[in-house]
Amino acid sequence: MTMRARHRFVGSPRLGALLASGLLAALAAGCGPRDADQPIIPSTPLRAVDTPPPEYPAEIGCDQIGGKVVLQLTVGPEGKPTKATVLTSSKTQALDDAAVKGVQRWRFEAATRNGKPVATDIQVPVTFHPPADRPAHCGPA
């Protein structure tokens, strides 16, 4: 006599029906096994292409102020920044504003998921150093 394994769902029949319908819905939505003929497309990270440093604000050049601004930057699927938010201020509004304005010119190669470009959030530190030479229009120190 051979023994066959039997599987029995322990619980209510209604719960079993709900689980089965959820599994079918997941498979229909593409969450199930991948078709063998579909290639695996690896994801790629965001890559900086052109990120020139933001310009130091001329209006504070005489004050010789430096500082660091940390921005939360959202890069859209086109590789252009779509949103820049100050996370950590330099405590100088002109530097914060220059950082936000400067990163808007940056360009990236967008990150991809399943071969398609996607928006990506990154944190970007921007450090400003006062001009090495005090601007002539400032007068004597």
Rank of each mutant, 00 (worst) to 15 (best):
V10R: 14
L73C: 00
P117A: 10
V49N: 10
P57H: 07
A36S: 06
T120W: 01
K80V: 08
V118G: 03
P45I: 01
E59W: 07
A136E: 10
V100F: 04
T74Q: 11
A17N: 06
I41H: 02
T112V: 08
I60A: 05
E59F: 04
K91L: 15
G79W: 10
A36E: 10
T44Q: 14
P125M: 09
V103D: 01
S89C: 08
T51S: 06
L15S: 12
P39R: 14
E59K: 07
P135A: 02
D97P: 02
A132I: 08
D37F: 14
T82Q: 15
C62F: 06
A110L: 09
G67K: 03
V49A: 14
P125F: 08
L15A: 14
V70S: 05
A28T: 08
T120H: 03
A20S: 10
P135V: 03
A111R: 05
A99S: 02
A110N: 07
K91H: 14
P53N: 11
V10A: 12
R107Y: 03
A25E: 02
P53F: 02
P131Q: 03
K80T: 12
S43A: 15
R4T: 05
P45H: 02
S43T: 12
V100G: 04
P130G: 02
L19M: 13
T127W: 06
H137M: 05
V49W: 05
K101G: 03
C138H: 07
P125H: 11
V10C: 04
K83N: 14
S89P: 01
R113W: 06
C31V: 11
H129L: 15
T85C: 01
P33W: 09
V49Y: 02
S90M: 01
P45Q: 06
P52L: 09
D50N: 14
G16Q: 14
P52R: 04
V100W: 00
Q38S: 12
G115V: 08
A98R: 03
G66E: 06
K68P: 00
V118S: 08
S89A: 10
K116D: 11
P81G: 07
T92P: 00
A17V: 10
F128V: 13
V124D: 01
T74Y: 01
G79T: 09
G66K: 09
E55W: 01
L27S: 10
T127D: 09
V124P: 00
P39Y: 11
I60F: 13
D35R: 15
S90V: 06
G76T: 11
Q72C: 02
L73D: 00
L18E: 07
R6M: 09
G79Q: 12
